[in-house]
């Protein structure tokens, strides 16, 4: 599904990603871990097509298509979803209105008519229920005055609504208490299927107890320095990142 080949990316001439190689197949969950500043969030932004980052070498291929020339919205229409570490506020725009616009824009890109209101309502109801979201929440302005947990839950709600092929969860666990974490993780697990893939970016092993990865990669200094199975996450938890850093130097 996703193939990243020797990806180099910089921001303001500072190279952050220094040759990433990653292959993700449909039905898989990959975890990307690593210390602060290792390039995790940059990798997520580059896959989503954020313009501030310049790809200097290598490429990102989704289902056989090089995404190089695709705008962020093109990529979204092709099924890339990013759950933001810091979701932005859009005052005066309700969660429902935002979702309606997003879904219909994606449909328009595919040459489809707008989703009928009835269908949209049904979908909203189902997904909100799945994520234990109060209906009142949906009429509130997007992320405005939301608690950290609400913001993250809202990201996963959007993921549920947009049904992406590739979902990247950037530090979705940060700012969540244990109950919210459980709800969010359950949501992700329910959305997981053999046709889509999930990349979980996290500092800690905690989230991975709920969303169990097939592969764990450690990112350090813009490169994947170690890959393994889910047990690698436990090892990192126990030993910290220092041993990886030392290993990388050697």
């Amino acid at each position: 599904m996703l193939k990243i080949n020797d990806l180099h990316a910089s921001v303001e001439d500072k190279e952050i990603l220094k040759g990433i190689n990653l292959s993700v197949n449909a039905g898989e969950v990959h975890a990307i871990m690593g210390p602060n500043g290792s390039g995790k969030s940059t990798l997520a932004s580059v896959i989503a097509g954020k313009e501030e980052f310049e790809v200097t070498k290598g490429n990102v291929v989704l289902n056989g298509e090089d995404l190089e020339d695709d705008s962020p919205e093109d990529r979204a229409h092709k099924g890339v979803f990013l759950s933001f570490q810091y979701p932005v506020e859009i005052p005066g725009v309700s969660v429902t209105n935002f979702m309606k616009t997003a879904i219909n824009e994606s449909r328009k890109a595919k040459g489809l008519e707008d989703m009928p209101a009835k269908e949209m309502l049904k979908m909203i109801r189902e997904k909100a229920e799945m994520l234990e979201i109060d209906r009142k929440f949906l009429s509130r302005s997007l992320n405005e005055g939301f608690s950290g947990g609400e913001k993250k839950r809202n990201e996963i709600f959007q993921m549920a609504m947009l049904e992406p092929k590739l979902a990247i969860l950037d530090e979705t666990d940060s700012g969540l208490d244990i109950d919210a974490l459980r709800i969010v993780a359950n949501g992700v697990n329910k959305l997981k299927s053999k046709d889509n893939a999930v990349i979980v970016i996290t500092h800690y092993q905690r989230l991975l107890e709920y969303i169990v990865p097939d592969f764990v990669h450690v990112l350090h200094n813009g490169k994947i320095v170690k890959s393994g199975g889910k047990e690698l996450a436990l090892e990192l938890e126990a030993k910290g990142y220092d041993w990886i850093k030392n290993e990388a130097v050697v």
Binding site: P72, F81, F84, V88, A102, L162
Partner: peptide
């Protein structure tokens, strides 16, 4: 804000 909307497929 714009990027957030773009990422959700909104031009």
């Amino acid at each position: 804000q714009i990027f957030y909307c773009n990422q959700r497929g909104i031009e």
